[in-house]
């Protein structure tokens, strides 16, 4: 699909908006619809779209394997880390009220961080699965 000019131009036009929309959904999830999960999927969809049009190797240069696989674990760590920090600050596990001086602000901050963790893990996992599948497609059938 690399040679199709229409696809390339459309992809180049659309992907920035997809990525910005993912960020918007991620950071605006507490005001509008959406949240970490949706944002992660949209971000991953943008990357996968890029991978479909411009090839797997180009995408791997932007988001290398180590980065994507670190994201898989980092999201869970962010999430659980927020819980541990709230415990260290004297609250219960995942009790965000202690994260800031004002309980409401603490809740807000906690939700934002936790959603970030979800988003990071989800996008990491989705892109990883795509890499794994697409990586197998590149080789000869006899190799399997």
């Amino acid at each position: 699909m690399k040679s199709d000019r229409v696809l390339r131009v459309i992809a180049k036009l659309m992907i920035p908006f997809v990525l910005v929309f993912a960020l918007y959904v991620q950071l605006h999830g507490d005001f509008g619809p959406g949240g970490g999960f949706q944002a992660g999927v949209i971000l991953a969809a943008g990357l996968i779209f890029y991978g479909l049009i411009f090839g797997l190797e180009t995408t791997r240069r932007i988001a290398p394997d180590w980065l994507v696989e670190t994201m898989v674990a980092a999201g869970v760590l962010i999430y659980a880390g927020v819980g541990v920090v709230s415990m260290l600050l004297g609250g219960n596990f995942l009790d965000y009220s202690v994260l800031a001086r004002d309980p409401v602000a603490g809740q807000h901050l906690g939700i934002l961080l936790v959603e970030l963790g979800v988003g990071v893990t989800v996008s990491g996992v989705m892109v990883t699965i795509f890499y794994m599948f697409a990586g197998r497609a590149g080789r000869e059938p006899g190799e399997d």
Binding site: G32, G36, H108, G110
Partner: peptide
């Protein structure tokens, strides 16, 4: 009031 997050879905889900 408790979470300061207008989207109730997010509040329930994350908090």
């Amino acid at each position: 009031a408790e979470t300061g997050v207008p989207n109730v879905v997010t509040a329930v889900l994350a908090s």
